[in-house]
């Protein structure tokens, strides 16, 4: 798959954006889902909730551990992937596809520039 229109946070979230739109899709990276192992529950933010970049917006319960999810960008939550309520394991199978978490309407597009490109993220997790 192409990671050209994706950016990555140091907390292992990804952001997928489109030119001319402030609505972005987010999720956690393949590396993060692998490290967490089987995910059994995701606590999402509410639709309409305001997020501040790098502040916790939810939690992930995996079999062996629990982790915070950080907002990769500031903005407003517009949609939550409720399919994951019934089958959170989708995240482990398809972290960049069907396992997306939330859609956020960005309030400051320039925050994208503060995130990493795929090759930078890969280098950070020692896979580049």
């Amino acid at each position: 798959m192409s990671f050209e229109n994706m950016r990555f946070s140091k907390e292992h979230e990804w952001v997928q954006f489109e030119e001319g739109s402030n609505l972005v899709t987010t999720g956690i990276t393949d590396y993060a889902s692998g490290e967490l192992g089987d995910i059994v529950y995701i606590e999402f933010p509410e639709v309409g909730q305001e997020l501040k970049s790098m502040e916790p917006m939810g939690t992930i319960e995996a079999v062996k551990t629990v982790a915070d999810i950080y907002a990769p960008l500031s903005g407003v939550v517009r949609e939550v992937n409720t399919v994951l309520n019934d089958d959170p394991g989708i995240v482990n199978q398809s972290p960049y596809g069907e396992g997306w978490f939330v859609k956020i309407e960005m309030s400051d597009r320039s925050e994208l520039d503060g995130l990493m490109e795929k090759h930078e993220y890969d280098r950070m997790v020692g896979k580049g």
Binding site: G37, D38, V40, V63, K64, G89, N92
Partner: peptide, 8 residues
Amino acid sequence: PVSYGSIL
């Protein structure tokens, strides 16, 4: 070994 792939 904690898991060979998936604990579940």
